[in-house]
Design a protein around this nucleic acid. Sequence first.
DNA 1: TCTTGATAGTATCGAGTCGATACAATAAAG
DNA 2: CTTTATTGTATCGACTCGATACTATCAAGA
Lengths: 202, 202
Amino acid sequence: MLASRYFGLMIARTPATPADAPLIAELIERLARLVRAERHAAGLNPAQWDALTYLARCNRYSNTPGAVARFLNATKGTASQTLNALERKHLLQRRPDPESGRVVRLFLTPRGETLAARDPMQELTAAAATLPATQREAMLQGLAAMLTQLQRGRGDRPFGVCHTCRHFRAGAKGERTHWCTLLEQTLQDSDRTRLCAEHEPA
Amino acid sequence: MLASRYFGLMIARTPATPADAPLIAELIERLARLVRAERHAAGLNPAQWDALTYLARCNRYSNTPGAVARFLNATKGTASQTLNALERKHLLQRRPDPESGRVVRLFLTPRGETLAARDPMQELTAAAATLPATQREAMLQGLAAMLTQLQRGRGDRPFGVCHTCRHFRAGAKGERTHWCTLLEQTLQDSDRTRLCAEHEPA
DNA sequence: TCTTGATAGTATCGAGTCGATACAATAAAG
DNA sequence: CTTTATTGTATCGACTCGATACTATCAAGA
C-alpha cells in the first residue's frame, strides 16, 4: 500500500466511500493533466489532438462534426471551432455528404494522417506498458467500468468499435466485407476495429 | 476481456508494446475528458477547480503561486492568471509572506473553503468506489506507478504528504506537533496528511 | 401540400487557458 | 558589492468552451 500513503488525499467526503477511491480519482486527474501538458506539441493543443486522433480512428460513418462533438464531450459549437482550427492548419478537409445535404464529412489530409500517428499520448501508453500484465488487465477492466458508469450517468452513448456492436454482421469466413444492420451499409474488413458513433454493445 | 474488445484501439505503434497498453492510455484520457466537462460548474473552470482544491489540501508552506504552477504542470504565468480569476471571484486572497519579500502566500476565503468541498471530481470518486477492493488496489498501484514514471521522465517533483517525506520527524507518541528538517519548522498534527511542494519520498 | 418539429452544422460573444516573452523585485553567493 | 538565481506578475496571440442565436435540411403529420 505504498501508493495510498504516498499520495495522501485523506479527505473522506462520504463515509460510505472506501478510503482509496478518492486516491484513484486524484491519480487519474493528475495523469491526465500531465498528458495534457505534454500535448501542447507540434502546434496543436489537447483538444485538437483529441479531434485529430479520433478522426484517424473512426469508421467512415462517424467522421462528422456531431460525432466529434460527442466524442470530445463538447458542444457542437466548440467542436466546430476546433475543426476550424484544424482546417486552417490544412490537417483536415470538410466535404458535404453526397447522401444528405445537412451532413458534413471530415477527412484528414495526408499531413493530418502523418501527424495523427505522432500523438504525444504515446508517453502514457509507454508508461502503461511497463506494468505487469495482471495489473494491466485489472486496470483495463476497472477503468472501462468507471467510464461506462460515468457515461451511463450522463446518459450518453459510449463509442465502441464495429465488431462488438449489435448492428454488426460478420461476413462468411475469409470474407473481407461485413454488414451494418443500422446503416444498412457494407463494412470493409478494416472498419471492424474502428470507432463508431452509433455503437451499441451487443 | 470485454474491455479491450469494447474499446478497440488496435493501432500498435511499437511492436514491443503490449496490446492493452494503448487501451489503458485511451481510457484514462477519456475519463479525464469526461470529468473535465463535469468540472465546468459553479462558475469555475477545470483549471480553477484544480487550483482551488490544491490550496484546500496543501500544507501552509506550499500555498504559493509557484507551488500551484508546479502542481498544475503549468507555467508560472498561466498559474498567476488562474489565481487572478479566483481572487476576482473572492475565493482567494494573496498576502505577502512576512519572512521573504518575494514570496506570496495564498489563502482561501470562507467562500473558497466551502466551494472546495463541493469538487465535481466526486463523481469520479464515486465511480471508483463501486469497484471491488482488489481491483481498486491494483489500479491504485498501477496509476501511481505510471504517474511517478511520467514525472520522473519530465524531471519534476511528485508532491506528496508530509508524513511520508524524508524531512518529516514525528513527535513523541501522543505528541501533536512534529518537525520538518528541511524548513526547520514545527508541523501541526493536521499537516501530516497535507500536500507539500517540497516533498521527497523517504 | 403545407406545416410543424427535429436534426446537423455554423457564427459570434465573453471569460478564461496556455505558452512565450518580457519584466519587476528580492535574495543569495561570489 | 556585484552578479546570478528565484519568485512572481503583466501582456500578447491563438485557442477553448459554454451559451445563444442562427441557417439549412430532412421528416412526419394534417
